[in-house]
Design a binder for these strands. Sequence first.
DNA 1: ACTTGACAACATTGGCTCCGGTTGTAAAGT
DNA 2: ACTTTACAACCGGAGCCAATGTTGTCAAGT
Lengths: 195, 195
Amino acid sequence: MTEALDPTAARRAAILDAATGVFLRYGFKKTSMDDLARAAGLSRQGLYLSFATKEALFKEAVAHLTASVRAASVAALGREDLGVEERLLGAFEAVHGIALGQPGSEHMNELLETAIQLIGPSVGDMERALVSDVARLLRSSGVAARWKEAGISAKDLAEHLDATSYGMKHRVATPAEYRAAMRTAVQIICRGAPG
Amino acid sequence: MTEALDPTAARRAAILDAATGVFLRYGFKKTSMDDLARAAGLSRQGLYLSFATKEALFKEAVAHLTASVRAASVAALGREDLGVEERLLGAFEAVHGIALGQPGSEHMNELLETAIQLIGPSVGDMERALVSDVARLLRSSGVAARWKEAGISAKDLAEHLDATSYGMKHRVATPAEYRAAMRTAVQIICRGAPG
DNA sequence: ACTTGACAACATTGGCTCCGGTTGTAAAGT
DNA sequence: ACTTTACAACCGGAGCCAATGTTGTCAAGT
């Protein structure tokens, strides 16, 4: 489905790919159009032929990014070859920053913040979408039903996990610590039940 | 037990009480000795009769603060008239900022940070003490035992709660949101069990 | 015992200019 | 269709200077 694009659209997509990487590494303010041009393999003016302003390029890059992050988390949640715990873990690692091991997820937070106050709060939709996706999985897998009798809904559980992820993201030094803490949180939800 | 202090010690304690309040409201840098003097109800030089420098006063004030926070959390954990959930909740609210509703917990974090890089990492002991206190309660109340078979230790549970608290504390979170999220987290731990 | 008033030394702040870098546009080249 | 070069407008940071605020000390008062 990514085949029959007219060449200009393909070029735009290539530019966006390169741009998201650079933005992710250096943040918004610290990347110049020169940097983006070099990363995309063309001249600075080449960019202006495809994108009117830096801000416009940024907006589309963020949309590109959030879309692929969302796709990654949805894909993680849908992997039926894995258990529920692994799927949840994968989804949260996906939103945390695409490749947790690779460099490049550094400025994810700053990026989303500037995007929010530049584009609008619609950017935050991804986060809310993740929460409801997670809640859905918790329901369909039967996990949520087990917590119901304690007065804790699927949404509560999902938001709890999201909050924990947020906390880890900001507190923790290393990806390994994040992974370990999130694993514990997920295990508590998935293996536990009231009674 | 706060009766038979010699008068100079009593004065110092009164000053520290006032100082912790002011520091908590305005942070370290933004409070002047004048402010502290006014809050303590004496002149600026009166302070220098009891404390050599602003830094010394600050150190003792932080010690004062952490001690009373610790005492409050220990007291909350020990209230045998309440259930385990309420006790845990109370303990975390205590460390979050003494009175969650009252103004004054604003600069708690900044305060502890500057204290750490001014006094040393010993300030962080309070946090670790809380974690082990919580773990102890989880063990003695039988909650931890129920999670053991899932490979989750009391320390894991306690650190999970601490991490969640940290996350909430740093998120946008109004006190009400913090309270609600922590309640959910505590309920999950206390009402749930593997199986 | 504590206050008042005054003091030098120092840190912080605000305003100011200057300068390099960046954006967006335009022309001419290939 | 894209590059190269050039350019006006703008912004942010570096550096400096004056003004203000703050600390810690002192002497004298009550």
